[in-house]
Design a protein around this nucleic acid. Structure first.
Length: 262
DNA sequence: ATGGCCAACGAAGTTGGA
């Protein structure tokens, strides 16, 4: 079984690239982020024609997540609210960033973690509070069957220095600040492990490159898209790879897909 | 050396991304 994650930076702009990629990489599940479209305008048919069941949770212009699955998903939940209390969630679900469903005894959680803008900004504080809410959400899901979780998506955090092309002077940089890393580590302490690091220890492997200043051609990248697994799934993982080929195309997303295999 | 991104919205320039 293969589960992929890909921030496509607009599904309508990237539709053809995603179809082509799925034709060459017929993964069982594809988790998408930044679809940037309301559900009624989502281009469903190109993907349904490939045999996928679509579960989409979008909004106008910003954010938006979706799961494509060859097998139908069970227990699909959109947003935090159905899992947590109204008091906890407040208005956080106005931004569509979380969708989950179950297939083959695995609960797949697809996330688009807030960017955070600049360290110390209001959006940065929102990111940190969102991550606290995510921890409560995941703790709740871990208490229910099927217990096996694959938490994947665009985390907008490089957990370690080896996940950044040049980690110097990044303590005050978004995606690498100590508070962000600690917030993510607190979540992993629930009992989740990085699938990619089971197989590859060295640095120099990235999933996002800035559009500006030739980020990709100079390989100035960051590894911010992840699969985090509960222990049994982690043991069962047989591979985890980053496919940089979509990033080489004309008009690419700034992210590229990551695939875990069981 | 210069100025050097991309998408949505909406019809020019702003906002957000990371």
């Amino acid at each position: 079984m293969k589960i992929a994650t890909w921030n496509v930076n607009s599904i309508r702009t990237r539709q053809e690239q995603v179809v082509n990629w799925l034709n060459h990489n017929p993964v069982d599940v594809l988790c998408l982020q930044e679809t940037k479209v309301i559900d009624e305008n989502f281009p469903r048919s190109p993907f349904e024609s490939l045999g996928y069941n679509l579960y989409i949770y979008g909004q106008k212009s910003y954010n938006g997540v979706a799961i494509f699955s060859l097998k139908p998903l069970e227990q699909v939940i959109m947003g935090f609210a159905p899992v947590l209390t109204i008091e906890q969630v407040g208005n956080v679900d106005e931004q569509k960033r979380v969708i989950t469903g179950v297939v083959d005894n695995i609960r797949i959680v697809n996330l688009y973690v807030p960017n955070g803008s600049e360290v110390g900004s209001d959006k940065y504080e929102y990111k940190l509070s969102w991550l606290k809410l995510l921890k409560d959400y995941l703790r709740s899901l871990l208490e229910k069957p099927p217990y096996n979780l694959c938490v994947c998506g665009d985390f907008n955090i490089a957990l370690e220095d080896r996940d950044i092309y040049n980690p110097k002077n990044k303590t005050n940089h978004i995606m690498a600040s100590p508070a962000e890393r600690q917030a993510l580590q607190d979540i992993l302490d629930l009992g989740l492990a990085d699938a990619f690091r089971k197989f590859i220890s060295e640095g120099g492997h990235f999933t996002w490159w800035d559009y500006r200043q030739g980020g990709f051609t100079r390989n100035r990248g960051w590894r911010i898209d992840h699969h985090y697994l509960t222990p049994q799934l982690y043991e069962q993982a047989t591979n985890c790879i980053i496919d940089i080929s979509p990033r080489e195309l004309d008009k690419p997303s700034d992210h590229t897909p990551v695939i875990v295999e069981f």
